[in-house]
Nucleic acid binder design. Structure first.
Lengths: 122, 122
DNA sequence: CCCGCCGTTTCGATTTCCGAAGCGGTCACC
DNA sequence: GGTGACCGCTTCGGAAATCGAAACGGCGGG
């Protein structure tokens, strides 16, 4: 349950997700996260640091701990579901003439990714 | 990505999770969700309704759609990870004399569940 | 020296969330 | 028929989270 609280915060999941490819510095990570505000960034980072999901390298970059890696892997099915979901509610762009049922939750700049990563350790 | 936004809101995941056992009415669901405020509840419900993750029965109860069920299943690995995680950062209560690294993210009333459910469709 | 990037902090403005009260409705019970 | 308990849902003022931009010192290159 506590995880639902930790990850139920605005950018936690996103940070976890963006760190999947490897360590990132503060500003680079910030840029990847839709340029979220640095204040919240630091806050989320601290929380994840506390939760031992990420840790900080000597060169001050942030990296997933083994525990964090597992969490990210645990996120894979959800990512897979998200693709199916997107395809279901927004088949090809649909006619947003009067119907915008889905657009409320689909931010145009967050529509991306397709789990192109190859995790052999999965 | 959009899913991270939809589920990155304060009670979305929790609602999805609490609906796993079957349809629930507004107030019962609210009670299950740590008595969250009804205003936010309605908001989340509307978002999930829009996303076609849940739908409303003729008796006005809320139920997971097939898509919602899949989402909930996709959440299983995360739930499993959460258990391991809890065990890692909070072995048995730890000594919070000067160290409180984990207590910041562990709400006492949200520590529960152990995926006792049986999902044959997994 | 200057410039660009870095990690991080601070602060005021905006958005979200909370919590309690209230609305109209149904149903059981007396 | 009145009363009380629950229901789905809305409204509203205050608290908390989030934003956005500015600023700080540090570091490396030109």
């Amino acid at each position: 349950m506590a995880a639902l609280d930790l990850f139920g915060r605005r950018w936690s999941l996103r940070i976890l997700w963006e760190l999947r490819a490897g360590p990132l510095g503060f500003r680079p990570l910030q840029k990847r996260c839709d340029d979220m505000s640095s204040s919240v960034m630091r806050q989320r980072l601290t929380e994840l640091l506390d939760a031992q999901v990420i840790h900080q390298l000597p060169d001050s970059r942030y990296e997933l701990t083994p525990l964090g890696q597992e969490a990210r892997h645990a996120l894979n099915p959800l990512a897979r579901w998200a693709e199916r979901w997107a395809a279901t509610i927004d088949p090809q762009g649909s006619d947003h003439t009067d119907d915008q049922s889905a657009s409320r939750v689909l931010h145009p700049d967050t529509v991306d990714d397709g789990t192109p990563e190859r995790d052999s350790a999965d």
